[in-house]
Design a protein around this nucleic acid. Sequence first.
DNA 1: GCAACATATTTACAGCTTGAATGATTCGAA
DNA 2: TTCGAATCATTCAAGCTGTAAATATGTTGC
Lengths: 142, 142
Amino acid sequence: MTTSPERQAIAERQLCGLVNGLAQRIAEHVRERAATLGLTASQATALREMSGPMTMRELAERMSCEPSNTTFVVDKLEKQGLVERHPHPTDRRAKHLVLTAEGTALRARLLDLLAVDSPLSGLNPQEQQVLHGLLEQAITSR
Amino acid sequence: MTTSPERQAIAERQLCGLVNGLAQRIAEHVRERAATLGLTASQATALREMSGPMTMRELAERMSCEPSNTTFVVDKLEKQGLVERHPHPTDRRAKHLVLTAEGTALRARLLDLLAVDSPLSGLNPQEQQVLHGLLEQAITSR
DNA sequence: GCAACATATTTACAGCTTGAATGATTCGAA
DNA sequence: TTCGAATCATTCAAGCTGTAAATATGTTGC
């Protein structure tokens, strides 16, 4: 049983809307929790992704945004004393981003805040795993 | 076999990243196609969602954004002669958004453009249906 | 060595989005 | 009826994001 192209197109549009809707909800969740720490959503996202030293470009990829954007965000975090730009050990073009002690501490608190009452709590671990697989397949295809 | 809370938290963070990544890719796709019609991504999203007359708030909900944003976007579409704000038949507070003939035609072209080479084409219809179910469950829970 | 091209980051700019405040209208309860 | 709360749309300020261009450094092939 196949679906007509029009029906398929409608289904895909709906699906795009759902993906976007969930992304919005996740962003809102991050915004709420970040605000309690004096951070904006993008600052919190950056902090969340900084699990270790990395370059600006790496951070941009993890945040799914343009590198020029990370310049803006890291500027803010640096002014707050949470992150430092060190010279990269091997590539003088690149910057090595490292968390300060304060940044590391705040990141830990942020991760705790984000973990409780997650926007994905409506799915059990098995369902989340299925979702993970489908999203990865959709993203890596092509 | 259960997972530890920390592992579960890490998995959820990854999953959030994937949802966001796919949403970004969809946005980029819309941006590309919209540009060929002289529209921005948000204008195209608004047009895409206007399958019939609706209020500003309804449009905001469909676009997963704030009502104040739709004011901005509809202003643009109205200036381009694609949409008109009519008085709402029963509620004088609300506006009734209707597409002009030109808007209807452009919307049809937009939908055609969006349908080809969709960001979700890596998933077959069955997989898309599973994804649909999971996303809906995640969104409607709570 | 060096010219040509690629990569990392930054800057400038324009457009998008949110959140709070405002005015108009509707609805419900005393 | 009339008051007060809720809802619809808009405005404005502030911040976020992407594009394109500029700068600096690295890499490749001759």
